[in-house]
Simulated assay, not measured.
Amino acid sequence: MDVITYFSTNQHNLSTNSRTLAMNYILNEQIAAAAFLNVIYSVDAKQKIVLYHALDMLVERHIDYLDQALDLYLQRALAETHESNKRCISRTIFHQLKNNKNLYNTAQKKQIIHTMFDWIILPSAVATRVNAIHILYFLVDEEDWVKEQLIALIEQNLLLQEPSFLSRGRKILKLLQKKKTRI
């Protein structure tokens, strides 16, 4: 059974057990990241969400899984509009950058920076926005304007946002301040 048929016929769900089964299938069958990304875009919308959640779980545990397919991943992932998928994508990029800030090349980092600002400014779920501000913190030294814009955006939204955004926003502001005083 090919991988597309497997994920089309074995309807996984968002339960931890089901996502773990999907993740283990990917690992046991040694499915390359590019092939799995093709699967994600070959199944129905409901399964696509589940597979993005499985990919999120997979990358959290096997941080280098996407390393050979970063261009393809970003090309597809950063164009996503479904909130659940965006949340998973932002978590995946967060974990990757937390582990290795130099994983992405300069062009990829610029693409991530622009998308994360869009996801913060445009209506996105709070989890996506919280991950996005932390991703931008990791990439703050990539472009001269990122730090200034990130600080302004967080400060502008401190009174208007959910508690999780406020908490992470304050944390990022403190980290940026510490970084500024070290220089």
Rank of each mutant, 00 (worst) to 15 (best):
M1A: 09
D2N: 15
V3F: 07
I4D: 07
T5G: 08
Y6N: 04
Y6L: 11
T9R: 10
N10T: 10
N10P: 03
Q11H: 15
H12T: 05
N13R: 07
N13H: 11
L14N: 09
L14R: 09
L14C: 12
S15W: 03
S15G: 06
T16V: 02
S18A: 07
S18P: 04
T20H: 03
M23P: 00
I26W: 02
L27I: 11
N28M: 11
Q30R: 14
Q30D: 14
Q30I: 11
I31M: 01
A32K: 14
A35V: 09
A35I: 05
A35S: 12
F36D: 00
L37R: 06
N38V: 02
I40L: 06
S42Y: 07
V43S: 06
V43C: 06
H53M: 03
A54F: 00
L55W: 03
D56I: 00
L58M: 07
E60C: 02
E60G: 08
E60W: 01
H62T: 13
H62P: 06
D64V: 14
D64R: 12
D64G: 10
Y65M: 06
L66T: 05
L66E: 01
L70T: 14
D71F: 05
D71Q: 12
L72R: 01
Y73C: 06
L74I: 08
Q75N: 15
Q75H: 15
Q75C: 13
R76K: 13
A77T: 04
A79D: 14
A79Q: 13
E80Q: 15
E80M: 11
E80A: 15
E83F: 12
S84E: 13
N85L: 08
N85K: 08
K86D: 05
K86Y: 05
C88H: 04
T92W: 01
F94G: 01
H95Y: 07
L97I: 09
K98T: 07
N99A: 11
N99C: 08
K101Y: 09
K101G: 12
K101R: 13
N102E: 15
Y104T: 05
A107T: 15
I113A: 01
H114G: 08
M116N: 04
D118F: 07
D118P: 04
W119H: 06
I120S: 00
L122N: 10
S124E: 08
T128D: 08
R129W: 04
V130Y: 02
V130M: 09
N131F: 11
A132L: 04
A132F: 03
A132I: 04
I133N: 00
I135N: 05
I135H: 03
V140F: 01
V140G: 00
E142Q: 10
E143M: 09
W145V: 11
K147I: 13
E148Q: 14
L150M: 06
A152K: 14
A152F: 11
A152Q: 14
I154M: 05
I154S: 02
E155P: 08
Q156V: 00
N157W: 00
L159Y: 13
L160V: 04
Q161F: 03
S164F: 10
S164H: 09
F165H: 02
F165N: 02
G169T: 02
R170P: 05
R170K: 14
L173Y: 06
L173V: 12
K174W: 10
L175V: 02
L176G: 04
K178L: 13
K179S: 12
K180N: 13
K180Q: 15
T181Y: 11
I183G: 14
